[in-house]
Design a protein around this nucleic acid. Structure first.
Lengths: 154, 154
DNA sequence: AATGAAATTTATGCCGG
DNA sequence: CCGGCATAAATTTCATT
């Protein structure tokens, strides 16, 4: 499904989607049109999920980030899916991971400050009858956020 | 620094950087040129940190994701910065968060499978004399990964 | 399936308001 | 700082190999 050329293109493209196709082509030994055609196919087949901009949280006034561990009471599929859906609806919730083990969910939550985070907890976690407990890890330094993936050779 | 128009543009643009400036302009009541001008300034001032592509880990053969908690022995600035730097160099490490409390670092690690993850632990955590302990939370479902930020009104 | 050129779309630069 | 126009660049399409 993905040949070596695709992987090399993705490796370059994912870091900066504004890189012109011609420049990518020069690096991988392909014409600009060929690179474009492959990128189009990679979008259509869902290998490229989205092309997004990463913003500076501080300059936006989003000064508070936390890693939140959530332990659910009812871990059945309908209940966990419902929890997931509620989390995804919240703008504060940037990432949602369902994990194995003692903790059921790990969230990355971004807010304008501690009061806004507390409001989120009040609205989403504290009153949820299916949330047994949750632990907040306040982020002091987000050294690397959503960096590029290492493309394996395949 | 950021007016309401900037925020509305960012809100649209960050979700899909391929949205034409003219289409964004139509939504916020600005010409395409004005939107481009603002985007350019937002890039130059670092509000837009990067424009990247989000890829499908499964289709790339990256089937293993884990949230890893790391407890360091020496938490002094030079030591923690050195740890951070080492982590950022590893292609498996997608995100690095320094957090307050009992745990010192939270990592999001992506690998081709459990063996590759074990190799990462062996190379980076197990033999590091400054790593007191680490806990692996295997991710079963990454429901939302690095989604768009909620732009506050400012 | 890739290339090269043509056609279309999108972005950038400049000027007048 | 905006809009409009001219220019430049990038993407897409198409014919060819």
């Amino acid at each position: 499904m993905l040949d070596t050329l695709d992987r090399r293109i993705l490796d370059l493209y994912q870091r900066d989607t504004r890189t012109p196709a011609e420049q990518i082509g020069a690096q991988v030994g392909l014409s600009a049109a060929a690179v474009q055609r492959r990128l189009k196919r990679l979008r259509e087949t869902g290998v490229i999920v989205a092309e997004t901009a990463q913003l500076d949280c501080r300059q936006l006034g989003l000064t508070f980030t936390a890693i939140v561990h959530v332990d659910l009471i009812d871990e059945s599929a309908p209940q966990t899916l419902a929890f997931q859906r509620r989390m995804k609806e919240r703008p504060e919730v940037q990432q949602v991971y369902g994990v194995a083990g003692a903790v059921d969910y790990v969230l990355v939550v971004v807010a304008t400050g501690l009061p806004a985070y507390e409001a989120f907890c009040e609205a989403c976690l504290l009153h949820d009858p299916n949330v047994r407990s949750f632990t907040t890890h306040v982020v002091l330094d987000a050294a690397r956020r959503a960096g590029p993936l290492a493309i394996p050779a395949g």
